[in-house]
Design a protein around this nucleic acid. Structure first.
Length: 280
DNA sequence: AAACAAACCTGTGCGC
DNA sequence: TGCGCACAGGTTTGTT
């Protein structure tokens, strides 16, 4: 579900509502959510701490704590973070609840039907051991910024299909299945093309599309699909799904060229939608 | 190096 | 209406 724009939208919501609040109590109802460590580790790491800031690297959401530790939240496929009133009825699959101080007091819910998501408190000075994926993450186009030259260097010598490269979090962090397809369509590049085969103008277009698609999607609050799984911390959906040109539009006329139908195929085990006429 | 499959889970939508 | 299967925004691991 959530890719860079959705995670960034959640981050902004947390930044707005969490900073300065203290955790008074922690409930862990599903051990799988804290599987990297334990319920005790999450409870010990969060109880009594105050939130001081937030950041994001790829799809990894980080909340800074006044203890010096950080809370990492990964939503994976179906995770949601919701801010709510104390005592409110919790949705099914609410696995972690943080009781927050403040006037008025709030609760932060971690809801995740498929349970792929996770929460962990870690020591940033020991990240290589406690959260090794984080230190292996590729460049984040928004948080780090990415130059055209940097992108060109990342593609050089890589013969993998460009769609697979965009999805590889070790190369570029944050792009998922929706935005990879949308970026390639706007770039007018076939998802099957080897990364190393892209011409100079194609790399220029790809670079521009990565930044413009992600920026526009963030401004739209992300993409909320028909199952309304993804919502921000206030429970509101995004609107970038209205701007999708290819994702989940197989069989429909391409809105860009109006002369071909969107085709669906598989790349790296992921459904891939593209316009065979626009994207060569 | 790169492509593919399977694994982790639950829910939904579709064909029959 | 009910059943079974395919498939879903992610990531890791293992096999060709």
């Amino acid at each position: 579900m959530p890719e860079l724009p959705e995670v960034e939208t959640v981050r902004r919501g947390l930044d707005q509502h969490l900073i300065g609040r203290q955790v008074e109590r922690v409930e862990v109802g599903r051990l799988r959510t804290v599987r990297r460590t334990s319920a005790a580790a999450l409870i010990d790491g969060l109880s009594g701490v105050t939130f001081t800031g937030t950041s994001r690297r790829g799809k990894y959401l980080l909340v800074y704590l006044d203890s010096g530790d950080q809370l990492m939240i990964h939503l994976r496929m179906s995770g949601r973070v919701l801010l709510s009133e104390p005592g409110a009825v919790r949705p099914p699959h609410t696995h972690v609840v943080l009781h927050l101080s403040g006037e008025p007091a709030k609760e932060l819910w971690f809801v995740d039907p498929r349970t792929f998501g996770e929460m962990v408190v870690f020591d940033p000075d020991n990240v290589a051991v406690e959260l090794p994926e984080l230190s292996k993450l590729g460049i984040d186009p928004i948080t780090d910024g990415i130059s055209r030259a940097r992108l060109a260097a990342l593609l050089a010598g890589r013969g993998r299909q460009i769609k697979a490269l965009l999805l590889d979090q070790h190369v570029i962090a944050g792009i998922g299945n929706i935005y990879a397809d949308e970026i390639l369509h706007r770039s007018r590049i076939s998802p099957f093309r080897p990364g190393s085969s892209l011409t100079r103008p194609e790399i220029t277009r790809l670079h521009a599309a990565i930044l413009s698609i992600l920026t526009e999607a963030i401004e739209a609050g992300g993409s909320t699909l028909s199952d309304t799984q993804y919502v921000d911390v206030m429970g509101d959906g995004g609107s970038f799904q209205l701007d999708h040109r290819v994702y989940d539009r197989a069989g429909q006329r391409c809105a860009t060229c109006a002369k071909a139908d969107i085709v669906r195929s598989m790349i790296g085990g992921r459904s891939t939608s593209y316009c065979p006429r626009c994207q060569q």
